[in-house]
Design a protein around this nucleic acid. Structure first.
Lengths: 235, 235
DNA sequence: TCAATAGTGTCTTTTAGACATTATATG
DNA sequence: CATATAATGTCTAAAAGACACTATTGA
């Protein structure tokens, strides 16, 4: 919007970003949380967040939050806005409007926080009572999880959780981990290969595990941005 | 996020809201634009936007922008965040982070701007060259339109464009206006009534127009938040 | 009556889902 | 050989879409 016209009661108002970094760990959806070493927060874990600098884009601030608070450089991770949380009293330190992001990455990059602690939690643990989150992150985290779950339905975003090249079993395990349900391998295969440009077949084959098994074809990400038809989760 | 820890190059940084108010006008999707009376913007139209006050929620600021810049009080309108636009140089007056909203309302409420001009444009006109938008609103407007189009698919949001009670023809005209396609009345009816809690039938009947015609059953909004199955637009 | 609009029936195609069968690897 | 995993085939049910048909109004 413009400026000049409306003076009003507009004063210092901070803009921050909070990042929900999601990954697949031990077959389950996991989220990165940090424990600030500041004494005033009674050991509550929170999403990594930083104030946005004057010369920095919101996306850049999100990457910086991951780097400075968890030691994670994830330049290739999928990063997208979740929504902006701006209730006047959401932060006890003053008015802070926070742009929340979700970031998706394959495998857990090991957190190396310069201060405090940082680790991945299975999302199942986060809902419980024993893990209290700071600020309004109790609201942001479920929003982030639901966003990931629903975007797997109508976008090819599941591929952001696997390294290339990948097998269709790898991709299916992503859906199973994020949705928390079993997916029929045969029907899954048909839907993935029939959805236009979701994945592209390579010439390679996977090497079977120690117990044997037929080698699987290897695939790479396709160019699609939405899935036709969608991969709907069971209702 | 927190505060105290990171000082950095964080300074004055304004937060604003911009609102894309969408409605159905003359059978087409229309958007509200305002023409600021400030001389420095060379007559470019823009979305109504306001800076967010210290004591005000983002949603409240969105309503205030509609009221102060277009004279439209739409307390019942559907209001939801679109996304936040925060590139460092998006506003020539300085760093302004803008939380964009979409608002959906039945019929065009007549704009009565206290200053400048405000009117609805069919969204088809906005893409053209003769209507230049200020700031980065050229990006926000297509995002808003696409959001409305896709939300009609998997949410009952079409009902936000009609007054209650409404006929299924009214609702179908919303889909046709927003998507810009014709929708088969028979199949549309079947899908709407079979989608759980999309609409609820009332006892009333509509009064036919001057040319006659069978009176239509009247419906109200149901309680669903998502549609099962979805109302997919033609590909 | 006719024109106009609402609502139902029916048929075909597409998609989803359950589950059996075949293919190719290891030990 | 048995076991494990990948890939295909088959059948049924659900949903989408085209379109004919019936129902109820005004003129």
């Amino acid at each position: 919007m413009s400026s000049s016209a409306d003076a009003g009661r507009v004063s210092a108002c901070a803009v921050a970003v909070d990042v929900a970094l999601l990954t697949i760990r031990d077959g389950a959806l996991a989220i990165l949380l940090v424990e600030p070493d500041t004494p005033d927060l009674s050991g509550r874990w929170s999403l990594p967040g930083r104030r946005v600098r004057d010369d920095e884009s919101l996306d850049d601030a999100a990457h910086r939050a991951l780097l400075e608070l968890a030691g994670i450089a994830a330049p290739g991770a999928h990063l997208e806005q979740l929504r902006t949380y701006g209730e006047p009293n959401r932060d006890p330190h003053g008015r802070v409007v926070s742009v929340a992001y979700i970031a998706l990455t394959p495998h857990p990059p090991e957190p190396r926080p310069p201060a405090g602690r940082a680790r991945f939690f299975a999302v199942e643990e986060v809902g419980g009572r024993e893990l209290a989150l700071a600020y309004d992150h109790e609201r942001i985290v479920p929003d982030a999880i639901e966003r990931a779950r629903s975007k797997l339905e109508y976008t090819p975003l599941a591929t952001a959780f696997v390294d290339e090249p990948f097998t269709l079993a790898d991709l299916r395990h992503v859906y199973e981990a994020v949705w928390g349900v079993e997916v029929d391998a045969a029907n899954f295969r048909r839907k993935v290969v029939s959805a236009e440009d979701f994945v592209v077949e390579t010439a390679g084959l996977s090497t079977p595990g120690p117990g044997g098994g037929r080698p699987a074809k290897l695939y790479r990400r396709g160019t699609a941005t939405t899935l036709h038809p969608a991969m709907l989760r069971p209702r």
